[in-house]
Each structure stands twice: as structure tokens, then as C-alpha cells.
Design a protein around this nucleic acid. Sequence first.
DNA 1: TATTATTTTTAGATTTGTCTAAATTTTATT
DNA 2: AATAAAATTTAGACAAATCTAAAAATAATA
Lengths: 219, 219
Amino acid sequence: MNFSISEENYIKSIYHLQQQAGLVNTNSLAAEMQTKAASVTDMLKKLSAKKILQYEKYKGFKLTEHGRKVALSVVRKHRLWEYFLVEKLGFAWDKVHDIAEELEHISSNDLIEKLQQFLGNPSFDPHGDPIPDSNGRIPKLNQLCVTALPLNKSAAVSSVTNQSPQMLEMLKHYAIAIGTSIKITRRFQFDGSLEIKVLKQPACIISEQIAKNIFVHYD
Amino acid sequence: MNFSISEENYIKSIYHLQQQAGLVNTNSLAAEMQTKAASVTDMLKKLSAKKILQYEKYKGFKLTEHGRKVALSVVRKHRLWEYFLVEKLGFAWDKVHDIAEELEHISSNDLIEKLQQFLGNPSFDPHGDPIPDSNGRIPKLNQLCVTALPLNKSAAVSSVTNQSPQMLEMLKHYAIAIGTSIKITRRFQFDGSLEIKVLKQPACIISEQIAKNIFVHYD
DNA sequence: TATTATTTTTAGATTTGTCTAAATTTTATT
DNA sequence: AATAAAATTTAGACAAATCTAAAAATAATA
């Protein structure tokens, strides 16, 4: 079946929201989509009729197995294009999101398979997020939130969950990117903030709020 | 100003039609767009209000200078993506049109500038059509229709104007692509058909109708 | 538990792009 | 020039996606 750009965007957003909480509710989806609750309800009816959603009035909703497959194919396209933009075209990793938002809706499967090959079958996008394969399988990486990293143990940043321009700008300022090796040199009990050390950079302090979004790789 | 996908498609089609005849009329645009004359009239009013068109009821229409610029930017994007699909992703040249139809509407200028650089600033797309630069300038190539090529003079195919799947399939069958060296070995006065010779291929006969769409390069 | 507040849905309107059928204008042909 | 044919436009309708305002259902609280 084919989906409109708008439908694909809803499906993708629902997927992301239900990663965190099992059931998704109307208002949180409206916030995520930057639209009104009434518009969400309209779309829910449509997606429900198309068997993308399990939806019960007033009770919340989640994707069906079929809906999840559709979501993963959009996520796959988004992340492959992000990889392309950064690795082949030379974009900075904090500039590619909006462009990939458009590219993810190009419909050709042939295109996305050839793109994947051209890129050398990458497993993770430039933000460290896993790229689902054509069957919807998601590569896993052992991850740990920096808030849980032992003191003075070096580890490589593997992903950043909040990808707002503000967050990405801040990381850039601290010279932190995917793959950057970091070390927690001090932990402040008072507010949970961390003193971190990046190679060739002066030590700096990040708030717990930021730290919660940064994950590192361990074996 | 920003244009919808539909508006961009109309603008591009008008551009192509007015390349051949100065003024464009409603029915021919409807045919090109595979839609109805009434829909075309509706869109003409909109584009006219946006100063894209010079339009007089019942009299035909053509792009303003501004409209031409917009058209050329869409054409530029289409042809750069076609080049990418063939040269980087390995698509056959007769498979890329529909995908490029979608990609040409991705809006980022930054993207298209970086793509152009990545591709090495190509001047012609895989069908031999010139790729306008970011200022709307179109590279020129001295071209000659094969119907006007002297007997037994070899020349390289530089472009093919009709890009219907049928035409492209036929050219593939005759082993003719952009750059292929061909020679007219005989000219039939009766119906204008031509006997042509492609290196390592048996001589074959093409109708005048096909020949009219094939152009060769000369110095 | 009764009442208030929040969340969600419905009803009805709007915009964009399309359509059909009818009316109008232009062009072609007796 | 009168009439027939073709091209074009108008009028009115429809689907998709959105919105506002009001109604209904659920959750929170006094």
C-alpha cells in the first residue's frame, strides 16, 4: 500500500513516541507533529482504517505490526539519507535533519537499495542511531548513558538521543561528536552535573539534562 | 517564493513546451501533464497571480523571466539527480526519470550546490541534456539532428529529445546511448528512414520518426 | 462523590488541487 | 457571413489535510 507524505510523518512520529511509552496519546502526538489534537484524531481514524494502528477512542493507540514495518522503512530511508549527506556531500551532522525529512519520502525501493550499497551498508547514521535493514531489523549496540559511566573510564560517544539544533550546537561547542572519546573526571552530587574531558580540549561541565541524552559504547 | 510540487511540475512543463513553440496553449499543457484542461486553467490563474506567467484568456501563455528562472532551477535539480542516479548509484539511464521527478522537488539549495560539487560539476545529464548552472545559464553544445548528418560521416550521439520508456527501450535495443559513435550508411527518400551503423553492431534501419529525436555532436 | 480541569472527539469551515458538465470564445468550414 | 467544430473557461463538486469552536469523555481534586 502507498502512503501520503503526511501519513508517513504521522506513522514515523508514532513509532518514535511508542519507543518510550507503550501507548501513545493524542496530545503528545499533536505536540510532536506541531499540529492540533483535532487534526491528529482525523488522521488516527484514517490510519486505523488502513490497519496501521490499534486505536480505541479516548484510550490511546499504538502501531500494528504492519504499521511498525512501514515506520521502520521510513526511518531507514531517513537515516541512510543522513549518512549520505554527511559522508558523501560533506554536510555537518547537525544540518542534515530537515533535508532528510524531505528525502525520506521518495518512494522508490530500488533507489534505497542502491543507495545503501553505494554507502557501503552502514549500520549507524551520523547521530549514532541504528539504520534498520530492508527487513526492518535494527542493529544493536551495547550502550550506556554517560550518567552511568564510571569515573575516569574513557568511552566513545555512540549516540545522542535529543537531536534539536540547540543540543547539537551545544555538542559542537564542546567538540563532542559520534566516536569522540570522553571521560568523566568528576561527578557533582548536588545537581548531577558532570565534569567531562575530551582529548585536546579543556575540561568542561555539562548539566545532567544534557548528559541524559549522551550515550557511550562499551564492549 | 516557495512553490508546491504541483506548481513546480506545471512550471517545468510549460518551460519544456515553450522551448518548441513560443506560446503554449491549454490543451497541450493538459496533455503533457496528463490532466484536464479545466485543471490547467485553474493553475494558470494561480501562476499568473504569482507573476510566473504572462497569460491572456483564450490567447495562450508563456513564462515570465522570473518563471523561467524557477523552471530552470527545477530542470537543474532534475538533471543533477539523474546524473547522480546513473553515475553514482549505477542505474541504467532509461530507469532514472521517474525517480528524478520526485527528487527534483527537494527544496534545499544547499543540498543541490553540494550535490553538484560532489558530482564534479557535470554539464550534461545521462540523456545528453544540458544542466543549467545556479544562475540559470545553460551550457551549449553544437548539435545536429541525425536526419541532417552527411552520409558515412561518423558522429557521437549527444542527446535524445524524446525520453519515453518506449523510445529508450528501442535505443537500448539498437545499442545506442549518449556518446555512441554512429554513421548513416544509407538514406531512403521514400519514407525518410535511415540505415545506421553502430560499431560492432549489424547495420539497422530506423524510421524518420525516431531519427528526428536523435542528435549528434559536431565541432 | 461532586465538581473542576484536562484530554479527546465531533461538527463545520478552509485551502489546494483536482474533476465533470455546461457555457463561452475562438477557429474552421460550408 | 452563418454555422459547425474545437478550444478554453466557468460553475459547482469532491477528497485530503488542516483548522477553530463546541461537545463529550476521562482524570484530578476539593
